[in-house]
Design a protein around this nucleic acid. Structure first.
Lengths: 237, 237
DNA sequence: ATAATTAAATTGGTCAACCAATTTTTGGCA
DNA sequence: TGCCAAAAATTGGTTGACCAATTTAATTAT
């Protein structure tokens, strides 16, 4: 297969991923069948590889993915143990789920609004001064580009991610990390943003930031709501 | 290092992870320095490995992590390309990834409450009759066990997942699917639930269900809030 | 018999060589 | 000069052997 353009590339669903999924599925079955609990050791890589009829490498990669997901933790010369599920799992499973179910854009936006609204509410009361600085820097970066009439989608993304970070809720932070890029990329590909609104958007961002600085939760949420008005319109048409 | 108990195990921050972070960081520097854009090819693994003074294996693992987070995509015998996301976001997300926190239980519970509250609110207005039936069935299954004084964690889980399903928001549904089991498992392992409260919990579930049947969003949310009171107490102690 | 010590087996990690597919270069033909 | 096919170089993927640390079993001393 010759790859000339990015478009041609996108769909190259090798059987490799398929094999990996099968292995993961088998491991999960094994966990269920043997009633393995957090902390328990998984069978050795070599054993599992033989049992499943795959190479050790393939099995190792599958396990590595499970480790990324946070479902499993490896201990160098000791074994692989079942772990407590963590944020990483959340991240990984989310991206899987997002691709798997191909969520409707409306649901995505709706959820994003819910999460970010609460993130901002928390941020208004919990934010540290350092986090304020980071939000401010992101806002400045955005403003600088927006004033010039340039596209500043990336900077917009960073601003919102920094807001989520200031919520000091690691789960919310992770969720925003996963959900927001999806939305942004959708907007970029559809050229939704127009440059005329940039000045307005800067002011809206500023209002949110000000409210968080003042630790005024209600005002922060209100400012965010206002910021989302345009998004609402786009979403419901 | 001999590992006798799980506790001893937890903190085994090998230099391996550290090396990986260094490699990822260097890759980021390289992307910035060479002004690589989405779709551009990364230098070959062998070259990067030599350039960074690490083995190809270590570099491959670092790249695999980047691929896992969707920042990079590998094309089997062709090369590794930068994913369809801007440099700025890429930069930001990379640093975020490098310092991904483990989720504290408080954040998890907090987020769960946020999501489920909104799920219930949406469910009250959007639920179909069929979804009502499913919630009812889950509730009955729970009640049956709870009345007998049996543990009914699974049934409780199903009830809440069915609530989320009735929100008719695929993303919220997915999130609940990921978050709730984590919380439940935590509660199970800590034997938080006691059977004396079971009758009370049944009534609380019933109240939520009734409100959704009546399509009374506010009442549904209030009922859920009441249901979460105990959770709140546990979370904040 | 029991506890401590030592040896053997097991484990995940690492490395270098090799593979198949792709990409680039080369060479020849029109 | 332009174009196309073939060969060489490059690429990520795979394999099997080896490594150091750990775990388990065997052995010995008390």
């Amino acid at each position: 297969m010759k790859l000339n353009s990015i478009e041609e590339i996108e769909n190259s669903n090798t059987d490799k991923e398929n094999t990996e999924e099968i292995i993961i599925s088998k491991i999960r079955q094994l966990i269920v069948a043997k009633h393995l609990e957090p902390g328990d050791r998984l069978p050795a890589e070599r054993n599992l590889a033989e049992k499943f009829g795959v190479s050790r490498n393939q099995l190792r990669q599958a396990i590595q993915k499970l480790e990324f997901y946070g479902l499993v933790k490896k201990y160098p010369q000791s074994g692989t143990r079942i772990a407590n599920i963590g944020v990483t799992a959340l991240n990984g499973m989310m991206s899987d789920i997002l691709e798997l179910q191909k969520p409707d854009f409306t649901s995505l936006v709706e959820t994003r609004i819910i999460i970010e609204t609460n993130a901002v509410r928390l941020a208004a009361t919990r934010r540290t001064d350092d986090q304020i600085d980071q939000i401010q820097k992101a806002h400045d970066a955005y403003s600088e580009k927006a004033i010039k009439g340039l596209e500043a989608v990336e900077e917009d993304l960073m601003f919102h991610l920094k807001l989520a970070e200031a919520s000091n809720n690691s789960v919310i932070n992770s969720l925003m990390l996963v959900i927001t890029p999806e939305i942004i990329s959708h907007f970029v590909s559809n050229k939704v943003c127009n440059k005329e609104d940039n000045y307005l958007l800067i002011k809206e961002h500023q209002a949110i930031l000000d409210a968080i600085i003042e630790k005024d939760a209600d005002k922060a949420v209100a400012s965010l709501d206002n910021h989302f008005k345009e998004l609402h319109k786009y979403c419901n048409r």
